[in-house]
Design a protein around this nucleic acid. Structure first.
Length: 678
RNA sequence: GCCGAGGUAGCUCAGCUGGUUAGAGCGCAUGAUUCAUAAUCAUGAGGUCGGCGGUUCAAGCCCGCCUCUCGGUACCA
C-alpha cells in the first residue's frame, strides 16, 4: 500500500483555540500521528505533518465577550499555550500554524471563490434573528431566552444548558440578544450552501466501495450518514469573526468555521513550503487525516466533497480516527475542568514526556472508548518502563562499564542461543513495522517492548555475572549481544519514545540511525566507547499520583457546588399575568409510551373539566403502570400542540432535579379532580 | 425509536475467510536469581468469550431475539 506512493501528507485535527490541549486530544490524534510520522521519517520517506489552531467560530467570540477581550486575544492566548506545550511534548509538526493567519484567510477565501465561480454552491435566503441596536445578525449562540422544554431562563439559541436539549433558536421563549439585550427581530438573510446531496453518489462509490479497508468505526459511521441522506450545508453565516465571504454583497458574512478549518491544512502546507501543491494535488501523494471520532463526518464526507468540488485536490487515502479517552471513569470536559491538561502535566512531571506518550499509546482508544486512570499511569511507568525497558538498558550498560570500562567487547564464537536471540531482534522489528503500517500503535508498542523483554531474558539465562568468574571470553560474546539489543532499542523506540531513544543512543554513543538499521546485529563495533549510564525512567511514587487525584477531586467538588446553586429568579410578573395560567389537579387515567420515541408518554388525564390527551416527556423516568391513578398538576389552558401525530392538550408540571431526573408536582393529599392550583 | 461502533481473564487488549485443551502484557501466587531503580527470569492460578435460542460434524467468530456502554439522529409544551 505504502509502496505506491512517493510521499505522505499527515494532517492532525486542528485543536479549537478556546482552551488548552488535554490527554484526550493527545491520545486520539497527536500521539498516534506523531508516532506514525516519526516512523516514516526514520524510514527516510518524504512526509509532512501538518497542524494548527482552529481559531474562528462563535464559541471564541462568546468567550472573548465574557472576558471583555477581543477574539484575537483569546486565540492568541490559547494558540500560544497549545503550540508551546506541543513543542515541549515532542509532537514533531513540520508546521503548527493557525487559521487567523493571513495566508489562511487568503487560501480559504480563494477556495470559496473557486467553488463559487464553478457554481458549486446554492444560494438560499431565510429569516434569521437580527439585533437592530447592534445592527447585526445573531448566531444561535448569541440569543438567550427561556427554554421551551424546561422553561429555565438562560438557554442559548442552539442549546439549553440546563436540560441539555439542542434547540432551534426560533423556539426560544422571550428571546433576547446577548449583545445589546434588545429583543431581536426576524430579517431575511442570504447564505451559500454546499449541496452535499449532490456528491452522495460519488461518496458512496469512493467510501463504501473503494475504501472498505478503513477502520470499522470510520466506515460504519460514514455508511450511517450516507444512508440517512445528506443535506445541503450552509458554508457562510452572519458573524464578524472569521474569513469574510469574498463576493459582492456579503458584508458581515464569514465562512462557517467547519468550512474554513480543514482548509487550514492546506494553508499551513502553503506556509511551510512553496512546493505545497506537490503534497495536495499529486496523485502520488498519500493524504492521511488523524482525527477523533467526533470529526469523522467532516473528514470523510464534508471535506472530501469540498476537495472534489474544487477539482484539483487529492482525497484522503485513509482516516484513522480514534474513539474517545475518558478520565477516571468520566467523560473529559473542558468546561467542567475534568481533564489532564498537557501544559500542566509538563510542569508537574518534568522530563517525563515519554511516560505520558507511552501510557497514551499503550491505552489508546483505537477500537473503543478507553479510560485513563492515574493508577494505571503509575503502574505502567513503574512496572513496564522502569522495570522492563529502563532496567534492561541499565543492566547492559552498567555491566559493560564494570567489565570493559565502557568499550564494546568482541563477540567470539556464537552459540545457538545467541543466534536465536539475534534472529529474534529482526523478527521483532518486522512485527513492529507491520503493526505500524496498519495504524495499530498499541500492538506496535507492545512488540517494541518485547525487545527489552528479550534482553532481560537473555541476560537472566546467560548469567554473565556468574560466568565472568570462570569464562571471561564467553562473557564478551554475551555482552556484545546484549549491547546490540540495546542499540536496536535506540531505533525501535524512536517513534514512540523519542526522548528515551535519544538517551539510549547517547549512552551507547551512536549518532542518528535509520529504520533500515533496525534489526542489524553489528550496530556497535568492537572497541567502540560507550558513555556513562543514566537511568531512563524514575519510579513514580504514590504521593505524586495522590496529588493528581486530589486535584481532580477538587475539580469534581467545585462542579457539584456550581450545580447546587439554584438559578436566579425570573423577572417579576403581575398577578394578572399569573392568573392567566389555569393550573389544575388532574388524575392520570391511562398511560402508554409513544412508539418510536425515547421520552414521550401519551396520557389520558381527568382534569375535572374533561378527559383529555396530554403528551409528556417523562418516559425515561416512569413506566405507564406506576403512574396510572396518580394525581398531577396540569396546565390546562396551554395552546394544543401536535407531537408525533398526537395532539397534546396541556402540560403536566414536573420538578427537575440537578441530574435531570423528573418527578411529579402533586398535592399532599387527595383532592377533587379539577381543583385549582393558585 | 432508528443508524453505527463495542461488550473476551482483576485491568488493557489479540483472536485471520467458523476447526484440535480461547491467547498476550500488567496485576496476583509460588519458585529461581542478585549484574540491575526490591528491578529480572520461570512456573502457576484465574474466562458459562454480555444473555437466551438457532444453523453446523464443529461457533468467541454465522443467523434471530434480548440486554448494557459509547456516538449520531428523531423526540421533551
Amino acid at each position: 500500500m505504502t509502496n505506491n506512493y512517493k510521499r505522505t501528507l499527515v494532517t492532525t485535527a486542528l485543536p479549537y483555540a478556546n482552551g488548552p490541549v488535554h490527554i484526550g486530544h493527545l491520545a486520539g490524534v497527536y500521539v498516534p500521528a506523531d508516532v506514525y510520522v516519526r516512523y516514516l521519517r526514520l524510514k527516510g520517506e518524504d512526509v509532512l505533518m501538518i497542524g494548527g489552531s482552529d481559531e474562528h467560530g462563535v464559541p471564541i467570540t462568546l468567550k472573548a465577550k465574557k472576558e471583555g477581550i477581543t477574539p484575537q486575544d483569546v486565540v492568541d492566548k490559547y494558540h500560544g499555550i497549545i503550540k508551546e506545550s506541543f513543542e515541549k511534548f515532542g509532537i514533531s509538526f513540520d508546521i503548527y500554524s493557525r487559521t487567523s493567519s493571513p495566508v489562511h484567510h487568503q487560501t480559504a477565501s480563494d477556495f470559496f471563490k473557486t467553488l463559487y465561480d464553478k457554481g458549486e454552491f446554492i444560494e438560499k435566503t431565510s429569516e434569521q434573528f437580527y439585533d437592530q441596536e447592534a445592527k447585526q445578525f445573531l448566531a444561535d449562540r448569541y440569543i438567550t431566552g427561556t427554554c421551551p422544554h424546561c422553561h429555565k431562563d438562560g438557554a442559548y439559541g442552539d442549546q439549553c444548558e440546563s436540560c441539555g436539549t439542542s434547540l432551534n433558536a426560533l423556539d426560544l421563549i422571550n428571546p433576547k440578544s446577548t449583545i445589546s439585550g434588545s429583543t431581536p427581530v426576524m430579517k431575511m438573510t442570504k447564505h451559500w450552501y454546499l449541496p452535499l446531496d449532490k456528491h452522495e453518489p460519488f461518496l458512496r462509490q469512493w467510501i463504501l466501495e473503494e475504501h472498505k479497508e478503513w477502520k470499522t468505526n470510520v466506515y460504519g459511521q460514514c455508511k450511517s450518514w450516507l444512508d440517512q441522506g445528506l443535506q445541503p450545508r450552509a458554508v457562510s453565516r452572519d458573524l464578524d469573526w472569521g474569513v469574510p465571504v469574498p463576493v459582492e454583497g456579503a458584508d458581515g458574512k464569514v465562512l462557517y468555521v467547519w468550512f474554513d478549518a480543514p482548509i487550514g491544512y492546506i494553508s499551513a502546507t502553503k506556509e511551510l513550503t512553496p512546493d505545497w501543491e506537490k503534497y495536495w494535488k499529486d496523485k502520488e501523494t498519500r493524504l492521511l487525516h488523524f482525527i477523533g471520532k467526533d470529526n469523522i463526518v467532516f473528514h470523510c464526507i464534508v471535506f472530501p466533497s469540498m476537495l472534489k468540488a474544487e477539482g484539483s485536490f487529492i482525497l484522503p487515502e485513509n482516516v484513522p480516527a480514534n474513539e474517545f479517552l475518558n478520565l477516571e471513569g468520566d467523560k473529559i470536559s473542558t468546561s467542567r475542568n475534568w481533564a489532564v491538561w498537557l501544559h500542566e502535566y509538563l510542569e508537574d512531571f518534568k522530563d517525563k514526556q515519554d511516560v505520558l506518550r507511552y501510557v497514551l499509546t499503550a491505552a489508546a482508544p483505537e477500537t473503543k472508548d478507553n479510560d485513563f486512570t492515574w493508577k494505571d499511569f503509575q503502574a505502567r511507568n513503574n512496572n513496564e518502563l522502569v522495570a522492563i525497558l529502563g532496567n534492561f538498558v541499565n543492566r547492559a550498560v552498567v555491566l559493560t562499564q564494570k567489565y570493559y570500562e565502557g568499550k564494546i567487547p568482541t563477540a567470539g564464537q556464537l552459540q545457538d542461543y545467541d543466534k536465536e536471540t539475534l534472529a529474534e531482534i529482526t523478527a521483532i522489528v518486522a512485527r513492529v513495522e507491520e503493526s505500524l503500517n496498519l495504524f495499530r500503535f498499541r500492538e506496535a508498542l507492545r512488540e517494541a517492548m518485547n525487545l527489552a523483554r528479550l534482553g532481560n531474558k537473555y541476560l537472566a539465562d546467560m548469567e554473565p555475572w556468574k560466568l565472568v568468574k570462570t569464562d571471561a571470553e564467553r562473557v564478551k560474546t554475551i555482552m556484545n549481544v546484549s549491547l546490540q539489543i540495546t542499540a536496536n532499542l535506540g531505533i525501535v523506540c524512536e517513534p514512540f519514545l523519542p526522548f528515551t531513544a535519544a538517551k539510549i543512543r547517547n549512552m551507547v554513543n551512536l549518532g542518528s540511525l535509520t529504520w533500515s538499521d533496525a534489526g542489524r546485529t553489528d550496530l556497535l563495533a568492537p572497541g567502540h566507547q560507550t558513555n556513562e549510564p543514566e537511568l531512563l525512567f524514575a519510579k513514580i511514587e504514590d504521593a505524586e499520583i495522590q496529588l493528581q487525584l486530589d486535584r481532580l477531586a477538587a475539580s469534581k467538588a467545585a462542579n457539584q457546588a456550581a450545580c447546587s446553586v439554584a438559578d436566579p429568579a425570573k423577572e417579576n410578573i403581575s398577578f394578572d399575568e399569573f392568573s392567566k395560567m389555569d393550573i389544575r389537579v388532574g388524575t392520570i387515567l391511562e398511560a402508554e409510551r409513544v412508539p418510536k420515541t425515547k421520552k414521550l408518554m401519551k396520557l389520558l388525564v381527568d382534569t375535572g373539566i374533561d378527559k383529555r390527551t396530554v403528551v409528556s416527556g417523562i418516559a425515561e423516568f416512569f413506566t405507564p403502570e406506576e403512574i396510572i391513578g396518580r394525581q398531577v398538576s396540569i396546565l390546562v389552558n396551554l395552546a394544543p400542540r401536535d407531537l408525533k401525530g398526537i395532539t397534546s392538550q396541556g402540560m403536566i408540571l414536573m420538578a427537575e432535579n440537578a441530574d435531570g431526573k423528573l418527578c411529579f408536582v402533586q398535592p399532599s393529599e387527595m383532592v377533587k379532580p379539577g381543583s385549582m392550583i393558585k
